[in-house]
Structure formats: structure tokens, C-alpha cells
């Protein structure tokens, strides 16, 4: 049965309209994914039995505690690391390595310090669009630089930029790659509220326009609710798991000012927070993993709470 689902006959696939495929096959699928770091005594389970389906074109946000394994989850999806158990699939194929199809905005920006803003983005664009004319590539790069308001800094090197500016370069680089799926690892965390709002709008517009599949990791529940179709909380580690998904059935475009007063928005926010502060914060010892969580080395008080904008 599952084999049938995973490799449908070619005829069926090509005659099916897009929406049928979209509903029947998840674009991205995580099945019983676990990941640990370290060996022997130091071994620490970061992610435990994660299951996640993302439809093509869906915008999913994941919120969770610092250090719970969000970046680890992103690296798994990007293909930078492989899971210890379980599979990560995209488009019916297992993800075995990184690919420019899945554009990743690294949490630590990962800009190359010897290249200017322009050159950092050009490295990606030149690599991915070698058939374009030089002028077209140039224009493409400039377009994304101006989108993140960095045209005046286009010839600066990363060490001459502020943290927020670096983050914007990193976002521009990934968007300029025009990937099928966007993996955004706290892409706006270092930005002020205004720039943050601008780039939130930009991300939403890109998503609306190209219907890219987006997975956004954020520590800001409001940001998640504002942008995503679905918000999924990630419980605190070690052995973090995904909590119940919260469907965000608010009409788009969502206005960040009015939505704050919407009682439904507040209800959704509470749903996410309830999980994160309740069950997701102190994982209840299930019968089968009592032994695993017995050596807790992290007092729960030291965990940072997800950041919430209150009004």
C-alpha cells in the first residue's frame, strides 16, 4: 500500500491535476525521525520520533524553546545531516544530501567573510543559473539586494555589517536562489520590529506569488500565526517532539495590527502557548521512555520562554 502511494504509475501522475497530487501526497514527509548527538555517555537525544507532513505550497511554522533541536530539524530537512532513525522525504524521494531546491536561511547567516554582499549572493546565483546572461544575473542579484534594503551596503563585507544586515543578506541569498522549498531558521530574529515587519510581508508575498513550500522556524508565536497555515510547537529537549499542530484559519492577507485584537487569533496563540508552557515544557514520562529522560541535566527554569508580543 505504502509502496503504491510512494511511486504512483507515471500515467496517473502526469494526468492528475496539481491539486489532486497536492492533497494525496505530502510534499515533505518526516517519518519517525530521531537524531542524537555524541557517543557513549555523552550521547544526547535531540529529536525523538518526529512525524510531519507538509503539503506542496503550504506554509508551516515551528515554534519551540531555545536548544530544543529546531536547527537540528532544519539541518535534517536541508540534508546537511542524516537522521539516526526514520526517513525524511521530499517529493516522494528520500533526502540524502543538501540541494539548492531546498533553500536554507542559516540561523548564523553563514556568509563568506571575504566576499561582499553582492558577491555572497552572486556565488549562489552564478552557481544556480549558469545559463542566464551576465546582465540578467546581475539584475537578479541587485533586485534581491534592494528587496532587503541593502543597496547602499552592496559592496561591504560581512564584518562591516550589523547582525541584522547580515541576516538580511542571508535571506536575500536564499530567496535569490529561487528554491522550491524555503527553510527559514529564525530568519528575522536579529531584526528590529520595523524591518522585521517589512521582511515578514516580503516573505508572505513571495509565498503568495510563487506558492513555495515554506518551513519557518521562529521563537515568536505571533510571527508564526501571522504567516503560517499551520503552527507546530516543538517541545523542550532532550528528546524533543512535535506537539499538536494548530491550524491558522485566519483570512489572508492578515493585518498585523487588526489581527492582534482578533479573539480567534488570541485563542490560537493560547493554544500554541498552552502546549509549549504545559505539556511541551515538561515532557510527561511515557512508560517507554522513563529511562531515557531520567538523567535530566537541564533544570526547566533555565529554559527560555518563547517570545510573545503582548499588547
Amino acid at each position: 500500500m505504502s509502496a503504491l502511494l510512494e511511486s504512483p504509475p507515471i500515467t496517473a501522475r502526469s494526468t492528475e491535476p496539481d491539486y489532486v497530487r497536492m492533497s494525496s501526497l505530502p510534499f515533505v514527509k518526516l517519518k519517525h525521525v530521531s537524531k542524537s548527538y555524541g557517543f557513549g555517555q555523552q550521547r544526547r537525544e535531540v529529536l525523538k520520533d518526529l512525524n510531519l507532513d507538509i503539503a506542496r505550497g503550504e506554509f508551516v511554522a515551528i515554534v519551540g524553546y531555545s536548544g530544543s533541536g529546531k536547527t537540528t530539524l532544519m539541518s535534517l530537512l536541508a540534508g546537511l545531516i542524516r537522521p539516526d532513525f526514520g526517513t525524511v522525504m521530499m517529493d516522494g524521494r528520500e533526502i540524502t544530501g543538501p540541494s539548492p531546491e531546498r533553500g536554507l536561511v542559516f540561523q548564523n547567516y553563514s556568509l563568506l567573510p571575504w566576499l561582499t554582499v553582492f558577491e555572497n549572493i552572486a556565488l549562489a546565483v552564478d552557481q544556480l543559473f549558469p545559463n542566464w546572461s551576465k546582465e540578467k544575473r546581475q539584475a537578479h542579484i541587485e533586485q534581491y539586494i534592494s528587496m532587503v534594503n541593502l543597496t547602499p551596503a552592496r559592496s561591504k563585507r560581512p564584518h562591516e555589517l550589523s547582525g541584522g544586515m547580515r541576516q538580511r543578506v542571508s535571506v536575500a541569498r536564499t530567496l535569490a536562489m529561487n528554491p522550491e522549498m524555503l527553510l527559514l531558521d529564525e530568519p528575522l530574529s536579529a531584526l528590529d520590529a520595523l524591518t522585521r515587519a517589512t521582511l515578514q510581508d516580503e516573505i508572505e508575498q513571495i509565498w503568495e506569488r510563487d506558492r513555495k513550500t515554506v518551513l519557518l522556524i521562529t521563537n515568536d508565536v505571533d510571527e508564526a500565526l501571522l504567516l503560517a497555515d499551520r503552527v507546530i510547537p516543538l517541545s523542550a529537549g532532550p528528546g524533543a517532539t512535535l506537539g499538536p499542530a494548530v491550524e491558522v484559519d485566519l483570512d489572508r492577507p492578515r493585518n498585523r495590527k487588526t489581527v492582534q485584537r482578533d479573539p480567534h487569533f488570541k485563542r490560537l496563540r493560547n493554544e500554541v502557548l498552552d502546549y509549549l508552557l504545559g505539556e511541551g515544557a515538561r515532557k510527561k514520562p511515557h512508560r517507554e521512555n522513563v529511562a531515557v529522560i531520567a538523567p535530566r541535566d537541564e533544570p526547566s527554569a533555565s529554559r527560555r520562554q518563547p517570545f510573545v508580543v503582548s499588547n
Partner: peptide, 16 residues
């Protein structure tokens, strides 16, 4: 490792 990850995500050839 970050720099190498950039290379991996971009699928840079060994020479590049």
C-alpha cells in the same frame, strides 16, 4: 562547517 555547508547547499563541485 558553516562555509562548507554553504558549498554543499549550493552543490558546488569539488574544484569550485
Amino acid at each position: 562547517q558553516d562555509y562548507l555547508n554553504v558549498a554543499r547547499v549550493l552543490n558546488l563541485s569539488r574544484m569550485k
